[in-house]
Design a protein around this nucleic acid. Structure first.
Length: 576
DNA sequence: GCCGTTTTCGGCCCGACTGTTTTCAGTCG
């Protein structure tokens, strides 16, 4: 059983307990436990086998026992019992925006509502008005919520969310009264998908800012409108705006960036020091005197912490690391010296090698690798062996024209169903860089797929495993795979793994990349660009790397060109 | 249910907005 599956069972327990109006802290304990499990960079089964479940913060005796039970028999008896009391359909009701546990309980108890379909029918027939606390308006809001839920666009990929957020920020910045403005929330933490966009501004004319905000082009609905806080639906996503005073900006930014769990930890630390943290600032409990608030650094300092980068704020060990002075210096886009997975006219890319080299050098890179597809990738116009040789000549001629810049001749070689590579060794040996990836036969069994990839990763001429899980965000689930086994094979053979920065892929993801780092596996961040503008995807890959706690030293393509070439050569003499 | 430089018991983050209310509960982040 996968970690996320265990986590989802724990979350379901939390949901049901919440509907049953159980102790809120007990509910929180299950949610926290679920989050800890999901963020765990290693398989729960391995941790359990070592008897270390209790070492996971947030997992105590009870949760450890339930996790053990999960791993042993795939279910939790306690949850089965809860499900008999509150059917799954009732838990589903809480997926509707504006509908929480109290209302779900009320609807189930009084009207037997146990599905969203039934809820919709009753709303349309105006059968809910008259229940305590429900009138016409509430029915309307529930129907709107059901529409949003049906549209299925509950989470938006980071690429499109950033685009919308940047546009909103630009429009609001035009107002002279807007002194400061920033994106907060999970978008600032650079989660791969987000549920909404949070924007924070400082202005002495909050009313003017709100006015501009709710009137923005593309606003489909004003969800809420207050003096300092408003929400709209804009192009299928909710955007929240808060306006605060200058002296509160840092506190508000810290607060609205979250995560919720991270903030709870910060507040607990503040409490122990006799302080109270809110979005308005840090205050002395006794006197209400403000001690911090204008900047985030100030807020963290007040509770005894160094500044923690937003990407780490998930309560996944960053508080402890900060206290011990072990926070990593995260890799930045400026550290990246080259891009190692690129496609050109030699297969399915748009630019020529020369065009790509010019664009990459203009961007400040010192090198790139062109990695066109191998012959089996027919859909992607994979290269025949002759064309591969012609590509080598092309790369050589481009290298003659450019100084201070190097094009490495590479290939993205298909991993065939049995783990064999798509080109013979004598050809691979002529390449500077060999990347291997799966592009076919996605539906193999977990064992077969694992064996297939492990075999390729162990091949002595292979440098990098590309998009290791094969997922396409929101389109295709990762293939069945024992990723831990693949990573162990990479470690043993010295092979690097890729963070594919294409916003469609982001593969490895943050959790897996963090595990790869833990194992000491070299990591590359590549865009997989098929056109010149795709070189800009690098920022998304760096975001994943930062969420994975990576420093520049963990990332191969931050090295100087000679160092990289040394690594590429040394890899081939690595004892397999 | 978890946790411990205040604690093995008694705590556990904090405020805005809406819709229903005549003073507040529910939801959200």
């Amino acid at each position: 059983m996968r970690n996320f599956e265990v986590a989802s069972l724990l979350l379901e327990i939390a949901d049901i307990l919440e509907i049953q109006q159980e102790n809120a802290f007990r509910v929180r304990a299950y949610r926290k436990g679920a989050q800890a499990v999901e963020a765990l960079p290693e398989d729960l089964a391995s941790v359990a086998a070592r008897g270390e479940l209790l070492d996971i913060p947030g997992i105590g005796k009870d949760l450890a026992a339930k996790i053990q039970e999960c791993l042993a028999c795939g279910q939790i008896a306690y949850l089965e019992e809860l499900r008999r009391q509150i059917p799954a359909g009732v838990v589903q009701l809480m997926r509707i925006q504006g509908l929480g546990p109290r209302t779900a309980r009320l609807l189930f108890d009084q009207m037997g509502v146990d599905s969203i379909d039934k809820l919709e029918a009753l709303c349309l027939a105006h059968k809910l008005a008259g229940l305590p606390g429900i009138k016409r308006k509430t029915e309307e809001n529930i129907l709107k919520g059901i529409q949003v839920w049906r549209s299925g666009r509950e989470r938006v990929p980071i690429g499109s969310a950033l685009e919308i957020a940047d546009a909103v920020v630009a429009r609001l910045k035009e107002l002279a009264s807007v002194r400061q403005i920033a994106v907060a929330g999970s978008l600032r933490r650079r989660r791969e998908t987000v549920k909404d966009i949070d924007i924070l501004a400082v202005s002495e004319q909050p009313a003017e800012v709100m006015e501009r905000f709710v009137g923005l082009h593309g606003v489909a609905e004003v969800v809420a409108r207050g003096e300092t806080k408003s929400s709209v639906r804009l192009r299928d996503i909710q955007v929240d705006l808060r306006v605060v005073e200058t002296e509160s900006f840092g506190a508000a930014l810290q607060y609205f960036t979250g995560s919720k769990q991270h903030n709870i930890r910060v507040r607990e630390m503040a409490q122990r020091r006799g302080l109270k943290v809110s979005e308005y600032g840090v205050f002395e409990e006794s006197s209400d005197r403000r001690v911090a608030g204008a900047t985030e650094a100030e807020v963290y300092a007040a509770v005894g912490l160094p500044f923690i980068p937003p990407e780490l704020r998930e309560d996944a060990g960053e508080i402890e690391a900060a206290l011990d002075g072990r926070l990593p210096t995260l890799v930045t886009e400026a550290d990246v010296r080259g891009d190692l997975q690129l496609h050109t006219t030699w297969s399915d890319g748009l630019p020529s090698v020369a065009e790509l080299a010019a664009a990459a050098q203009a961007r400040g890179y010192a090198y790139i690798a062109v990695t066109d597809h191998s012959k089996s990738a027919t859909i992607a116009r994979g290269m025949s062996e002759e064309r591969l040789l012609q590509m080598l000549a092309d790369v050589e001629s481009v290298n003659r024209t450019r100084s201070g810049f190097r094009v490495l001749a590479g290939c993205e070689v298909d991993i065939q169903a049995d783990g064999e590579l798509d080109f013979p060794d004598e050809l691979l040996r002529r390449l500077d860089l060999v990347q291997v990836s799966v592009h076919s036969r996605f539906k193999m069994s977990r064992d077969e797929m694992t064996a297939r990839i492990v075999r390729a990763v162990r091949h002595p001429l292979v440098h990098i495993l590309g998009h290791p899980t094969g997922r396409l965000l929101g389109e295709r689930a990762p293939y069945e795979l024992d990723l831990e086994a693949v990573l162990q094979a990479a470690r043993a053979s010295g092979t690097a793994v890729e963070i594919n920065a294409s916003p469609q892929r982001l593969d490895l993801n943050d959790v897996a990349a963090r595990r790869a780092k833990e194992l000491g596996i070299p990591i590359v961040i590549s865009t997989d660009a098929h056109a010149v503008p795709h070189l800009d995807f690098m920022r998304f890959g760096v975001d994943v790397a930062r969420r994975a706690w990576l420093t520049a030293a963990d990332v191969l393509n931050t090295r100087q060109e000679p160092d990289l070439r040394t690594w590429l050569a040394a890899k081939r003499s690595h004892p397999a």
